[in-house]
Design a protein around this nucleic acid. Structure first.
Lengths: 153, 153
DNA sequence: AAAATTATTAGAATTATTCCAATTCCGACT
DNA sequence: AGTCGGAATTGGAATAATTCTAATAATTTT
């Protein structure tokens, strides 16, 4: 079975599209984001990348992150004052911020929802992107229609 | 004609609800937010408030803003890295960030939209609030069905 | 392989915010 | 009115996050 993600190829390609090179630092920064998809801060990325490239500097991590954002390989996430966080999920999705744990989860958006939301804008407004952020709590799995998973494989 | 906004009353009341006082500094900070509804930063609020209270300190502006947020008199707005901005509009609304001018406009939400959006969440997720941010351009009023404005009054 | 370009690095500088300790203010009680 | 105590304000120091700068290193081009 071959990997369905065109990640490695499109990684170099997307950089090349902007006339930039796929350096070891950029690769490892990107790999770290792909591997731990928990919306880390630049400092957290720095800590993780150092395991692989012990001599990398924080400035380089900032540079790489900025570069990857420019090339549309990753996105920034900003809610609450505080450090910017980074997200390699490029599909349209919302973020759910769990106020208890501080964790942020990606929420996939049903097709058409974004169009529906843009429809509320007055005609002069032309939205290039829409960001949706939920804040709240993630409870224990609520007993919904399925009574109990006991008999499930 | 009496003012339809219960602002001044509810201002003192909402503070009192939290056992806090309506000080001149808090009042002027709040007034400034009500008067210029352009989502200013703390520094901008500081500059505006100084016209009225020349001896106020930046620390006090931060304190007042924080206090007003606690009492649900204003809200914070955070998009882009950069300073937190403040908004006295408590009705459910989205923000449209004009990338040309840098201005942020409030967009009223039609009734039911927030419920509809929350409906996309898996059952364990309980959202206390939803934030919607548009980014894009506010163009000149688009000529839609009307072919040309030439003959228009 | 020299020149030119691009990328990385460490540290200084900047920005935004919070912390702290010292007054000042205000309301309750004498 | 005078005093006590908590609440609020203040200026400056401290911290956190990010950007800037100038020097070096790596890669590509000539």
């Amino acid at each position: 079975m071959k990997n369905s993600l065109p990640a490695r190829d499109s990684f170099s390609e997307k950089l090349a599209d902007s006339g930039l090179r796929a350096t070891p630092q950029r690769e490892v920064v990107y790999d770290v984001l792909i591997k731990w998809r928990d919306h880390p801060t630049a400092e957290e990325v720095f800590a993780r990348v150092k395991a692989e490239l012990p001599t990398i500097s924080l400035a380089t991590v900032y540079n790489c992150l900025e570069t990857l954002v420019q090339c549309h390989l990753i996105r920034t996430v900003n809610f609450e004052r505080g450090p910017t966080r980074y997200c390699p999920n490029l599909h349209p999705h919302a973020h759910f911020h769990d106020e208890k744990s501080g964790d942020t989860h990606d929420i996939d958006l049903p097709a058409g929802l974004l169009d529906q939301i843009s429809a509320i804008l007055p005609p002069q407004y032309d939205a290039k992107s829409i960001e949706i952020i939920f804040r709240g709590a993630v409870g224990p799995a609520r007993a919904a229609s399925v009574p109990s998973p006991t008999a499930n494989p």
